[in-house]
């Protein structure tokens, strides 16, 4: 009954392991992700936490981004100012790809983050150990790097950090 009531109130249950997002008034539900996905999210979170300056916040799953009244996005990982308001773009959004989310992450989320002016969007693929770094320019996202396995990429935004896909996806 709790589930039904929560749904009827327009607030889907938050603790069933699923991710609920709204895209232009449409509900997007992602099922619980495989262990490789969680491992990659946690590894990247730890790395970013250590490198993060005190005025910024690294968040996993708990902070949403609501660019319009009809759109709510929950990236796997985001970095935002500590005094963040939900309607302002985070500094970085990260999606860890899985077979279920590859198309939505690569196609739909990319356009959403671009449209709503998120300065950096990273896509980490645990299967291929590949990290794609996109940066916002006046004409949209440009690909800054596709980092493979043991290669290391020195990111400068949102803060300096060295990224090695193999170390994040073991």
């Amino acid at each position: 009954m709790t589930t039904v009531e929560a749904s009827q109130a327009g607030r889907p249950p938050a603790r069933d392991g699923r991710r609920y997002e709204v895209v232009d008034g449409r509900l997007l539900i992602t099922g619980a992700q495989p262990p490789a996905h969680h491992a990659a999210v946690v590894a990247l979170m730890v790395l970013l936490k250590h490198a993060c300056p005190p005025d910024l916040l690294v968040s996993v799953g708990s902070v949403a981004f609501r660019p319009t009244p009809h759109t709510t996005l929950r990236p796997d990982l985001l970095v935002c100012p500590r005094n963040y308001t939900i309607t302002q773009p985070p500094l970085l959004a990260v999606e860890v790809l899985s077979p279920a989310t590859r198309t939505t992450d690569v196609v739909l989320k990319r356009t959403l983050y671009e449209t709503h002016q998120v300065p950096s969007y990273w896509l980490l693929d645990p299967t291929t150990q590949e990290l794609t770094i996109l940066a916002l320019t006046p004409t949209g996202y440009t690909c800054q790097a596709v980092v493979q396995a043991e290669e290391t990429y020195q990111a400068t935004h949102p803060f300096p950090v060295a990224l090695t896909p193999a170390a994040l996806t073991r």
Binding site: G25, L28, I29, G31, P99, T101, T104
Partner: peptide
């Protein structure tokens, strides 16, 4: 359903 993601349209 798109590859495991569910899309619900009112």
């Amino acid at each position: 359903v798109v590859d495991g993601v569910l899309l619900v349209t009112p």
